[in-house]
């Protein structure tokens, strides 16, 4: 029951946030000088002969794209259908709806982000655990040096570095394009490097923290071997909070695909967003921005829920507990570390 209330509350917040994001985006872009109509007209006007025709054409084009009415009316005209899921037609690709464009490109970006996240996790967890259990050893210092270096190379910096090494220097891989797994290799690597670094550091400090806990000493005092105590008491509790970091990082990766797609020419939603911003394609820009926002919020919700499932203390906080008489205070807010992209 409390879970339902929790979910409902979060859903309301999600919808409200989406609304504010859409208003902000729409309002800001309307404030800006220039519009899709204007840009198109300017393009056409430069080839035209008389300046009088340009003005005429501008107003014509503006009328066509509904840009001749006040901003709030424009927003209303957009919002009405948008609530029913109809995001309208793109200006730049007039033959497709925004929804169809997003549905076409989103899977590519999501796949990139998810694979990169998986890779980052697989690399980061063992490195972090080994560094923590061999604290102050050569392995610890060495791996933490590498890992800290990695954190300084988010998305496109890593991307450029990889291109310099594998394309410009070694000539092993193509710099861009999208025609098979070979082309996904560098984008995935570029995305994975920084999150892997951040998570490896997090795992290390988290394991160290748990190793200092009295219940670990207590488990050893009960006669547990090192391996058993590590598996049953240390790792479980140390890796649980990783969810709180991995969630926002994954959201960051989805956003990071914007740059990666620009660099590597990957046909994803990030490229769509960039193009829309450049030519002021309002419906497409609104659609892509809201998609990113929605992904981010769903990711946060997922983090909270999965953490609740993993940690019995929060589970009772969400009301998922067997025994509702013992509820701890609301911990979900505290869980969300500030690891925002």
């Amino acid at each position: 029951m409390q879970l339902v209330v929790f979910l409902l509350r979060r859903l309301v917040r999600l919808v409200l946030s989406l609304l504010v994001v859409s208003m902000l985006t729409f309002g800001l872009l309307s404030l800006a000088p220039g519009s899709f109509g204007g840009i198109q007209a300017a393009g056409a006007g430069s080839t035209g002969l008389a300046s009088g025709r340009t003005v005429d054409l501008t107003s014509q084009v503006q009328q066509r794209y509904g840009e001749d009415v006040p901003v709030w009316e424009q927003y209303g005209n957009w919002l009405g259908p948008a609530i029913t899921g109809d995001l309208g037609y793109s200006y730049k690709y007039p033959e497709s709806t925004v929804g169809a464009l997003i549905a076409d490109k989103l899977p590519v970006s999501l796949a990139l982000a998810l694979i990169a996240m998986g890779l980052a996790l697989v690399v980061a967890i063992p490195i972090g655990i080994l560094a923590a259990t061999r604290r102050n050893s050569a392995w610890d210092h060495g791996s933490m040096f590498v890992v800290t270096t990695a954190t300084a190379f988010p998305t496109y910096l890593a991307g450029i570095l990889l291109v310099l090494i594998f394309c410009s220097w070694l000539h092993w891989l193509p710099t861009g394009g999208w025609a098979g797994p070979k082309y996904a290799l560098l984008p995935v690597l570029a995305l994975a490097i920084a999150p892997a670094g951040i998570m490896a550091r997090y795992v290390r400090s988290s394991v160290l923290e748990v190793l200092r806990e009295e219940y670990v000493v207590a488990a050893v005092a009960k006669g547990g071997s090192w391996g058993v105590v590590m598996r049953r008491h240390v790792l479980r509790n140390a890796l649980m909070p990783l969810v709180t970091v991995a969630g926002p990082l994954l959201a960051g990766l989805v956003v990071g695909t914007i740059f990666i797609e620009t660099i590597f020419g990957v046909p994803g939603i990030g490229g769509l967003f960039t193009q829309a911003a450049q030519v002021r394609d309002m419906p497409l820009l609104m659609g892509t921005t809201l998609t990113f926002a929605l992904l981010l919020m769903l990711m946060n919700l997922l983090v909270d829920l999965s953490y609740a499932v993993l940690d019995p203390r929060t589970r009772s906080g969400l009301g998922l507990s067997v025994d509702p008489a013992h509820r701890s205070e609301d911990t979900t807010g505290a869980i969300l570390e500030e690891v925002k992209p």
Partner: peptide, 13 residues
């Protein structure tokens, strides 16, 4: 141990 809250693993029944 002195403090059961710390000496019992919080995430295991």
């Amino acid at each position: 141990f002195q403090n059961a809250m710390q000496a019992l693993n919080p995430t295991i029944p």
